[in-house]
Write a protein that binds this DNA or RNA. Sequence first.
DNA 1: ATCATAATTTAGACGTGTCTAAATTATATT
DNA 2: AATATAATTTAGACACGTCTAAATTATGAT
Lengths: 219, 219
Amino acid sequence: MNQTIENYLKGIYTLSKQSPSGVATTALAEKMETKASSVTDMLKKLDEKGLVRHAPYKGAVLTQKGKKIAIEVVRKHRLWEVFLVEKLRFGWDEVHTIAEQLEHIDSAELIVRLDEFLGFPRYDPHGDPIPDVNGHISDNRKAFSLSEAAVGTKVIIAGVKESSDNFLRYLESVALTLNTTMKIADRFAFDNSVRLKVKNREIIVSSTVAENLLVKKGK
Amino acid sequence: MNQTIENYLKGIYTLSKQSPSGVATTALAEKMETKASSVTDMLKKLDEKGLVRHAPYKGAVLTQKGKKIAIEVVRKHRLWEVFLVEKLRFGWDEVHTIAEQLEHIDSAELIVRLDEFLGFPRYDPHGDPIPDVNGHISDNRKAFSLSEAAVGTKVIIAGVKESSDNFLRYLESVALTLNTTMKIADRFAFDNSVRLKVKNREIIVSSTVAENLLVKKGK
DNA sequence: ATCATAATTTAGACGTGTCTAAATTATATT
DNA sequence: AATATAATTTAGACACGTCTAAATTATGAT
Ligand SMILES: [Mn+2]
Ligand SMILES: [Mn+2]
Ligand SMILES: [Mn+2]
Ligand SMILES: [Mn+2]
């Protein structure tokens, strides 16, 4: 299994959450930073290999075999991200491109040992759940978007919807990092921005930020 | 810089210790597990890129630029080997193929932090010196072959000349691992096999083993 | 239902790294 | 010095992953 194929499978897997009936060629092309015609070529190959079912003009769906590989890649990606942040002290905005490479290292035993070395983490540095060795994903966070949190409640940052480096760096700079507890002080009707109380300080975040920040109920 | 090129440069670098005037196409082909014609093709490309000087029929020599890259790859390979053995508890015979992949991860900052995380190791699990960040290799082991050690002297295992998995597994199975202290009890003239005293036990190793085991003076 | 537009696929090409078979050059033997 | 043999390069091909331009199919607005 090579890198290109693994990256395509992961891309299809990610996009299929939004469009379970079939991932569009154009959407996948954008995700993979390539051209639609290249995607079509690759989908044909993946179909021949039994990793994807590709109905021309109808989009692509992972087979069980393809999904299994995709989830394994996600597991490896997230475990390496934990390693980079917890052991090598990288920031959560710095680990994506490195993990993007490390996820393709081909050694099952390596991942078994890495998992153990890290203490069997359940979530990655962005709050995303780490699939177990059988590919099962259990997300116990009960997370919802900050834009849906009721005014007056306390919440804890549980993850991000969007994990672009820009967004992560913004959050880092205003000290809104994973597991931060905060109180929803206000939501302003005119632009849906949200005022938060974090420890001793207050901060107002835009509706876009609120939309993309995942929280869970706090005490 | 891609994997194939890095592997070729490393291969040329390793072989050039035996033949500094130029690495032969055939030798490189065997090392790279490919055909001589493929090697010729690649040497032409590397020459064009300024990484190698290739005089047709005369062999290949690394340029400064090529040597720099080769040594960086060696540095990364050996640091990852230390990680695998020291942190993930792999055996020294299990790490080569994994490090062969990890050495190509492209991130200078990653290696800086890995080096620090490992406590700036000077030698890898096979006793080979780890080049520093500037590509300088300092080998303070003063190691020599066990086959040259005088009878009656005490020596410490400092490394291996040949690091095939088979040889490493043999050494592991007879508990002749890095930093083991032993006394040269005898060398038998008829086949140059060597009797060693290690702690409370005795073991006889063949001349081939003695030839490929590096030792330094012990107390 | 027709037509314009957008999405997708196909056709033909290219760079990379590899191969086999044939040609060329170096080397060793006589 | 001529010749046999080994080493090396060249010629031509192929799989992979990509591209541009052209053709095809789907969609939705009228
Ligand atoms: Mn990747
Ligand atoms: Mn992540
Ligand atoms: Mn390698
Ligand atoms: Mn080593």
